[in-house]
């Protein structure tokens, strides 16, 4: 210590170090406090319903019986679906930007993508409710409903009220929301690949497709998995946009075009008016969401830290 202070006589240094340390600990304490607060707030529900809280899909504020299965399933389905839609597009966008696109266009396009990421989610929600959902109902759902046999497999999978408020449209809007973020990070990943790798592949006579598919993507694979998990984490917690167009029913969704709910949308919808066990159940939903997101992000961190980009 004395050695160190002899080398750094500047009194600002320990102050700055203290400040940085305080900032970091405050953040950690906040996180810990959050978990404790969620546990305490949700305890009445957790102790009353036990493990059944996670497996029951009853959500009845009249009889005060609550189960989180409906929202949990809705959350996972929308997040997975949105990822399935966004991932291939994000990969294509970033490959195009880093490999094929002329430099003069690449920069403005990248900036535009980053701007997309900055649009508030309520705007996506409004757009989804007033523009996308009606369009989807008219041009996709109605033709499907009228042409398919309702008893067939596809008829059952795609059954639902033709107004565009369902799990599938919610997933599409979610995909649009996580797409810019994912493409931006993918682009950075591709840029981090040393140019020699790419040049060597071309030198061996690979086609562009082979370079991307067999060399570049495998090179950043671990990083990509990390990004996918981060995108997944975002999709899990997204609230406002989903609340507007998912249809908000607590039942198990029985088709792709059925209305559902997510953990976040249920909390957003009912928190204002809730009291007693209802309130505790909503807080417990928050805890469940926290745990799911935490798990996903922990996996992402582990994967990302094993590869620097």
């Amino acid at each position: 210590m004395s050695l160190q202070s002899a080398r750094h006589p500047d009194p600002v240094d320990p102050i700055f170090r203290g400040l940085a340390f305080a900032a970091a600990t405050t953040l950690l304490l906040t996180l810990g406090g959050l978990i404790v607060a969620l546990m305490i707030g949700g305890w009445p529900a957790i102790s009353k319903f036990g493990f059944g809280f996670l497996t029951s899909s009853t959500w009845n504020p009249v009889t005060e019986v609550y189960g989180a299965a409906g929202p949990i399933v809705g959350t996972l389905i929308t997040a997975v679906l949105s990822l399935a839609i966004a991932l291939p597009i994000a990969v294509c966008v970033s490959v195009f930007l880093t490999q094929y696109c002329p430099k003069a266009i690449a920069q403005p396009v990248s900036t535009a993508i980053e701007l997309l990421a900055g649009i508030p989610s309520i705007v996506y929600g409004m757009w989804g409710l007033f523009v996308f959902a009606p369009w989807f109902a008219r041009t996709v759902q109605l033709p499907i409903l009228t042409s398919l046999d309702p008893e067939s497999f596809w008829g059952k999978l795609l059954a639902g009220v033709p107004n565009g408020a369902n799990i599938f449209t919610a997933s599409i809007v979610l995909a649009i929301m996580i797409l810019p973020y994912m493409s931006a990070v993918f682009r950075e990943l591709f840029r981090s690949i040393p140019p020699q790798v790419r040049e060597a592949a071309f030198g061996l006579g690979c086609t562009s497709y082979e370079v991307v598919g067999s060399v570049l993507i495998p090179y950043v694979k671990k990083g990509m998995i990390g990004v996918v998990m981060l995108g997944f984490g975002r999709a899990l917690g997204e609230t406002m946009a989903v609340t507007f167009i998912i249809g908000n029913s607590h039942r198990f969704p029985d088709s792709l075009f059925a209305s559902g709910s997510t953990l976040a949308s249920t909390i957003a919808n009912e928190f204002n008016e809730a009291s007693g066990v209802h309130l505790a159940s909503l807080i417990a939903l928050g805890l469940v969401l926290f745990l799911i997101t935490f798990t996903v992000l922990a996996i992402a961190r582990a994967l990302l830290s094993s590869q620097r980009y």
């Binding site: 959500w59 504020p61 009249v62 409710l129 007033f130 109902a137 033709p162 107004n163 029913s249 008016e273």
Partner: peptide
């Protein structure tokens, strides 16, 4: 079903707020 400020609805789908309900009604024949 019973009565409360939120219900376990036997049917249908939910819009957020009065505006959400009227938007869904307007859009759904």
């Amino acid at each position: 079903v019973g009565a409360a400020d939120a219900l376990e609805w036997p049917a249908g789908l939910g819009g957020k707020g009065n505006e959400g309900v009227s938007a869904f009604v307007k859009q759904t024949l």
